[in-house]
Amino acid sequence: MAEETEALSALHVLEYNYTRSVGPVIGRFLTGLRDGELLGIKSSSGKVIFPPVEYDPETAETLIEFAPVGPAGVVTTWAWVSQPRAKHPLQKPFAFALIKPDGADTAILHAVDAGSEEAMKTGMRVRPRWRKERVGFITDIECFEPEP
């Protein structure tokens, strides 16, 4: 048996600041959020991809034709978060959901503030709750909420 030895241990915090240039497509999407509108983009086959992508996933073509969508849409699937953590978008029970805005063929992941798990249903209609101060980021949508 080897003698028991002391294990070396030290705190190591590794932290860097990174930046991102978002390019013309994601840039326009984010600017749209600041202006309170949702923008998708038309794919080569005519589908509206939301959030927009720079290049067609099927043909690799450069995509340029933006298409306004929603802002209201349909929940395509969801998971209830009964005990939100500190970094979650809402500090009360909520749903993470895939939301397909009207006119879009794909869905985005966001939070739905439905009040209770019983109020959540696949197929339910929701609309964005916009922040008053918007900066051009995905969090400009505070969350989605059920349409009245």
Partner: peptide, 27 residues
Amino acid sequence: TARTDVSIAGLVREAALRALEDAGLTW
């Protein structure tokens, strides 16, 4: 120094398209 006009995807795309064009090929 900073190609702020393109995303990382846009940057690689620019070089790749030029190589494809030089080769006379498509995706």
